[in-house]
Simulated scan of single mutants.
Amino acid sequence: MEPAASALSSPPRLPWDLHPALTEDRLRVCARMLANARRDALAMASYELGDDPWSIGCRAFAFGRHRLQRAAASGEYPWLEVLDDSAHFVFVIGTDGNGVPVRFYRGAAEEPTERTLRRQEVEMQQLSLALGEVAAESLAFRFAVETGEGGRVERVVFLALRGEDRVECFWPVPLEMPAAAATGSAVQLRLIADDGYAGPATTIARGALLPAALPRRRAVAAPPRPQATLL
């Protein structure tokens, strides 16, 4: 599926044009969590013990789901809610029961699969509440986590897909932000701040996950056995 004019009945819109709850700041937070979840999965991978792209992908999905669940439960993001915490994970961006249901997947944003487009019952119900039954017909909101060499995240795209051949929104989420420019110095880019959880990448680097070596026990000499004497 290409976000080209031939696939669209009208030009793609921005997320907040579709629903006011889909603000840039909120989408950045969610995309950052998903990108950092895959970073952590890669940091923990052990190819010597049998990890491969499939197992890393499963872990990245679980880590992404857990980050979103933890953020929703923390109360720091009152606009974030988990709607379905199963393997069909659905979360909601918005408040007052009028939020937009969203799912995420790893893969090309231009080529969502049939599985990616499949909508859950609770997702369709929530979408009807947020947009109305007519506007919600065949619509799905997705984050596409695109990866490149070594499984690293290249970009995260927010999508609004209607059916199998219509793209209503195709918005690459900015994961970088410009640092403050100092007079006479070059402007550098830095990754947007984490979501408050450093993940295993930091703790592994510091050795925090490695237990301290236990002191070796000193051998305790067994008491001598009494020797039998001949009478």
Rank of each mutant, 00 (worst) to 15 (best):
R115C: 05
A4I: 12
E48F: 11
V156K: 01
F170L: 03
S138G: 05
A5E: 09
E114Y: 15
V220F: 07
Y197E: 13
V82P: 00
G148Y: 12
G148L: 11
R13P: 04
V102T: 07
G148V: 07
Q125A: 15
Y105A: 10
S86K: 12
L14V: 07
G163M: 05
V90M: 07
R206Y: 09
V102W: 01
A228Q: 14
R118P: 04
P174S: 03
A182D: 11
I204T: 09
E76M: 14
A43H: 12
I192W: 15
A71Y: 00
A41C: 06
V102F: 00
L18N: 00
A222L: 11
V122K: 13
R225I: 03
I56W: 00
G163V: 04
E110Y: 09
G99I: 00
L161D: 03
L68R: 01
E121R: 15
A4F: 10
D51T: 06
V134R: 15
A130K: 00
A221N: 07
E121L: 12
E24H: 08
E154Q: 15
P224T: 10
F141E: 01
T95A: 13
L175T: 01
F158M: 10
A41E: 01
A72G: 10
D194N: 13
R32Q: 11
G150T: 05
A180S: 12
A43M: 12
A179C: 13
R67V: 01
G50V: 11
R13A: 15
M124F: 06
L42G: 02
C30Y: 11
D85M: 07
Y47K: 14
S185G: 10
A201H: 09
V187Q: 15
L175I: 02
R217N: 11
A182R: 13
L209K: 08
L83N: 06
L127W: 04
T183I: 10
L117Y: 04
T229S: 14
G94I: 04
R106I: 06
P20L: 06
L83A: 15
L191K: 14
R217G: 05
S74L: 00
R32L: 11
P12N: 11
E24N: 08
R38H: 02
R152K: 15
A4H: 06
A45H: 03
R166P: 01
W79T: 06
R103N: 09
V29Q: 10
P211F: 08
T183A: 15
P78W: 04
P20I: 05
A140C: 03
A4L: 13
P223T: 06
A201D: 04
G163H: 05
M124P: 02
A193N: 11
C169A: 12
L34D: 02
G207N: 03
S6G: 04
L14H: 11
G75Q: 02
A180L: 12
V90K: 03
L34S: 03
P11L: 02
A205F: 13
S128H: 14
S6V: 08
A31N: 02
R118A: 12
A181S: 15
A130P: 01
Q227F: 10
A109Y: 02
G150C: 07
F170H: 00
F61V: 07
H66V: 06
G184L: 13
P101G: 07
M33A: 13
W16I: 08
A179Y: 10
T202G: 07
E2Y: 08
A135L: 07
F91R: 00
A181R: 15
P15V: 04
L117I: 05
A198Y: 05
E2T: 14
V29I: 09
V153W: 00
S55Y: 03
T229G: 08
